[in-house]
Amino acid sequence: MSAAAEGSGPTANAVTSDEGSSTTLKDQKKPAVALEEDDEFEDFPVEDWPQEDSEVPGEQDTHLWEESWDDDDTTEDFSKQLKEELEKVKANK
């Protein structure tokens, strides 16, 4: 006797037929950019894998995070506007 473990039974019915049923007015607002996706953390298709399969080849030393992001530029528009405002307020005193 052999057995097929996976079926498309009750759970599949429940999962696949939910689309569209939970649409509320809020959901109808069009989301921006390519951000719409499922929030559920899906099961992995495989149980185990070696660490190499998680590493982008040749990128071991690539830095993923910027720790120094202070913006020292005081010549762009934003800073100019702020400077103008400071001068204006001081002149009015």
């Binding site: 006797m1 052999s2 057995a3 097929a4 473990a5 996976e6 079926g7 498309s8 039974g9 009750p10 759970t11 599949a12």
Partner: peptide
């Protein structure tokens, strides 16, 4: 062996 979900074999 403990099959539950249809379609059953």
């Amino acid at each position: 062996y403990m099959v539950l979900e249809p379609p059953l074999p």
